[in-house]
Amino acid sequence: MRFHTRKWVKPEDLNANGTLFGGKLLAWIDEESALYSIIQLENSKVVTKYMSEINFMASARQGDIVEIGIEVVKFGRSSLVLKCEVRNKMTRETIITVDNIIMVNLGDDGRPKPHGKTEVEFVKDRLAEAEANGDN
């Protein structure tokens, strides 16, 4: 799993117990899933369709740095299925896992649109390919 984003837990991110509010963490996961999908599918019109049960395994406190990892589980016709792990950057302790997040690629009409992707692509490879083809 590749960990792409880090977040610093600040006072405004805490719940009444002084730990990271679960809703804030889920918002971070949803945003990271959307950004990852937009980059993979090369389309800014991507929405979250489904998020499986979540498993809170540990908490985070003010001052902790958490990192969000995303991995592709499957490419669907118009969807991308991801899994996510959030862990404490310093201790590597897992805070939460989400086994299935389904992101859907949309067309200009707002309806699901086939994306034609079958494997993970890295931006550096796309740039190298474009340069090799003289598309820069």
Rank of each mutant, 00 (worst) to 15 (best):
M51Q: 10
F75T: 07
H115M: 07
Q62C: 15
I96G: 04
C84K: 03
E53P: 02
V86Y: 11
Q62Y: 08
M57P: 02
P112I: 03
T91E: 06
K117G: 02
N43K: 11
E93G: 02
G116W: 07
L106D: 11
M51C: 09
M57S: 10
T94P: 05
G76A: 05
N100G: 00
K117Y: 15
G76P: 12
T48D: 04
I96T: 10
N55H: 10
S44H: 08
C84D: 03
G107M: 06
V104I: 15
L80R: 05
S78I: 08
V47E: 01
M103K: 13
I95N: 08
R111Q: 14
I68S: 04
I70S: 10
G110P: 13
I65N: 06
V81T: 14
R111A: 14
S78W: 01
E67T: 11
L106T: 07
V86E: 07
K45V: 00
G76I: 09
T48G: 12
K74H: 12
L80K: 00
L106Q: 06
I68C: 09
I95S: 01
D108E: 15
R92N: 13
F56I: 12
M103W: 05
V66R: 01
D64V: 01
E53V: 05
I96M: 08
T94Y: 07
I54P: 01
N105T: 07
